[in-house]
């Protein structure tokens, strides 16, 4: 093994000028990732960022690692090809709500269900930014955007619910203004064996400003977001406005709590990210404002077999059973005859 050099955030900053709009939520995400990288202990040359098309997909250009800026919506396919080719890589897939869920929804679904080892970060700003402000598949119904002057009539898709429905083994949510939380979630994602899906509430300052204001603003966040922690009760709210969630037969009820109440006594649900079936996490993912808090943190983290490990396992088993194939075997086995 080569001698380990302690890398710093700076080692992960590329020489390219960052060209997102001033005030864009992407800056904070980039910075958070660059800070996290040295902590992962993965050699820089083994890290690969892959993206599709959109504002978020410029991300790889700003990372001083390997990077592949591909085509719209199809980044999961390139990432799948890369990880089956070299399972030692740390693959990070950067996508957005349009790239990942509109044109690329199909690929996202299949990549999640196959459980290939990669981190999928979906920057959700509920708008098309790079094409200058059209509604996206996550835009709320009634969104007035350039192509929907009378308000959108699409029913939106919830990224985390979609991921859970696709069989994702790790699903989490975080917010672009909460650096500590982002860092924790990204780290958990990196540690997860298999596909780790992270939805990031991200602000588009130009075309959909303040879409996530309640959750992004430190002052309102405690009453708008529920920070999930494994083994802890589903409780949120600032002092004097404390609430908890009860879940019974799939029915969710919000219980008001005093600051002194013991949530357990009140029957508040304890968060379990390791539930074997995705039903509980799916219910959590579908809670939304204003009736419920937005759950953020790790919704689901379960272990399952990883695609590329199984593929390589089958190859090794075939070699073991049949011997490593040679060119001679390839061409000359079976029914051949010789002409003198």
């Amino acid at each position: 093994m080569a001698e380990t050099i302690q890398l710093t955030r700076k080692d992960f900053v590329s020489d390219q000028d960052v060209r997102w709009c001033p005030g864009c939520g992407d800056y904070a995400i980039l910075s958070s990732i660059q800070k996290l990288m040295p902590e992962l202990g993965v050699p820089k040359e083994d890290i690969l960022f892959i993206s599709g098309i959109g504002c978020s997909s410029r991300f790889p250009y700003y990372m001083n690692t390997y990077g592949f800026h591909t085509v719209h919506g199809r980044a999961p396919a390139f990432a799948s090809g890369a990880i089956v080719s070299n399972p030692d890589l740390s693959v990070w897939l950067i996508t957005g709500d349009g790239d990942g869920l509109s044109i690329g929804g199909n690929h996202l679904l299949h990549t999640l269900r196959r459980n290939l080892n990669m981190q999928i970060l979906l920057f959700n700003n509920r708008i098309y930014g790079l094409t200058k402000g059209q509604y996206s598949p996550t835009s709320k119904e009634g969104t007035k955007a350039k192509t929907t002057p009378d308000g959108s009539i699409d029913h939106p898709v919830c990224p985390a619910t979609f991921a859970l429905g696709s069989g994702a083994t790790f699903v989490a949510r975080t917010v672009d203004t909460d650096l500590k939380h982002m860092s924790m979630v990204f780290k958990r994602a990196a540690e997860h064996p298999g596909a780790a899906f992270v939805e990031i509430f991200q602000n588009c300052v130009i075309f959909n400003d303040k879409e996530w204001e309640e959750i992004e603003d430190k002052k309102t966040r405690p009453d708008a977001a529920l920070k999930l922690e494994h083994g802890e009760p589903l409780v949120w709210g600032s002092s004097g406005n404390r609430k908890g969630i009860k879940m019974r037969n799939g029915i969710v009820s919000v219980i008001e709590l005093s600051d002194d109440d013991d949530p357990a006594e009140k029957g508040i649900r304890i968060h379990d990210e390791r539930m074997p079936t995705p039903g509980y996490a799916t219910i959590l993912s579908s809670l939304t404002r204003p009736d419920y808090p937005m759950p953020i943190g790790v919704l689901r983290a379960v272990e399952s077999s990883v695609y590329e490990d199984d593929l390589i396992g089958q190859i090794d088993a075939a070699k073991e059973q049949r011997g490593e194939g040679t060119l001679e075997d390839l061409l000359y086995s079976g029914d051949t005859w010789t002409v003198e």
């Binding site: 592949f68 591909t70 199809r74 799948s80 090809g81 089956v84 080719s85 690929h107 299949h110």
Partner: peptide, 19 residues
């Protein structure tokens, strides 16, 4: 790698080439 569609199949191959 049997992909989910023709496009993904090509993406997988190009991803492998990049790797």
């Amino acid at each position: 790698f049997q992909a989910e569609d023709e496009i993904a199949a090509a993406g997988i191959a190009v991803g492998a080439s990049f790797a």
